[in-house]
């Protein structure tokens, strides 16, 4: 994984700012503030933000929302699986927090090209913190095995302090929509 201080293309911060905008939208909707954008050939083609509280579905993370938006668009255009796979392989994801284990697996399954994230996720991170699902498996396959993804390139620490300060203000304000006192804590866990 690349670390802070490495040179990134000029547009990296631009796209991360857009992801942070999405995180702020989530915050305004009393959701855990995580947002993302997906970029193909230097153009934003989808954005997403956390919707776990609204949907009562704790898997509706920003990444899953953005991926589903794209798949819906491409379904309407009647793209085939191989066409969809080809586009995903050119896409880069910018997300304010390290993808969790579930999202990192999903990004590997769809075959994303590269991921840029803000702060690390030391409880659930799937791109190095807890598991490393972005790196392609080095284990030998058993007897031919199933085809595996190639993994994806991962760059952390981009505008991490902005992402963290969003989390901080979210947990300080609490979640007035929560039905139970422990809910904000439990939600904290979801991203």
């Amino acid at each position: 994984m690349s670390s802070l201080g490495e040179e990134y293309p000029d547009d990296t911060l631009t796209f991360m700012l857009l992801a942070i905008e999405q995180a702020k939208v989530a915050m305004d909707c009393l959701e855990v503030p995580v947002g993302c954008v997906i970029v193909e050939d230097g153009k934003v083609i989808a954005s997403g933000r956390n919707r776990t509280t609204e949907t009562r579905n704790a898997t509706r993370h920003a990444e899953m929302e953005a991926i589903d938006t794209l798949l819906e668009q491409w379904r309407e255009k009647r793209l085939s699986q191989s066409e969809v796979a080809k586009i995903f392989s050119k896409c880069k994801l910018y997300v304010t927090c390290e993808p969790c284990i579930m999202c990192a697996a999903a990004l590997s399954f769809i075959g994303i090209k590269e991921v840029f994230y803000g702060c690390g996720n030391d409880k659930f991170g799937g791109c190095g913190s807890i598991l490393s699902l972005h790196s392609s498996s080095s284990e030998p396959l058993i007897s031919g095995g199933a085809p595996r993804g190639e993994g994806f390139k991962c760059n952390g620490g981009i505008m991490a302090s902005e992402a963290v300060s969003l989390f901080r203000s979210f947990y300080e304000q609490g979640n007035p929509n929560a039905p139970k006192p422990h809910r904000p804590l439990a939600q904290q866990a979801t991203q």
Binding site: T59, D68, L71, L79, S82, F109, I110, A146, G149
Partner: peptide, 29 residues
Amino acid sequence: YPWQWADQQSDMSSCYWHPLRHAAIVAIE
């Protein structure tokens, strides 16, 4: 075979498909 969806050769344009809609995910939804 979570990576296999991309290798479908046939014309699936008229069918519903989604690489991440595994049974558990659909059940949670």
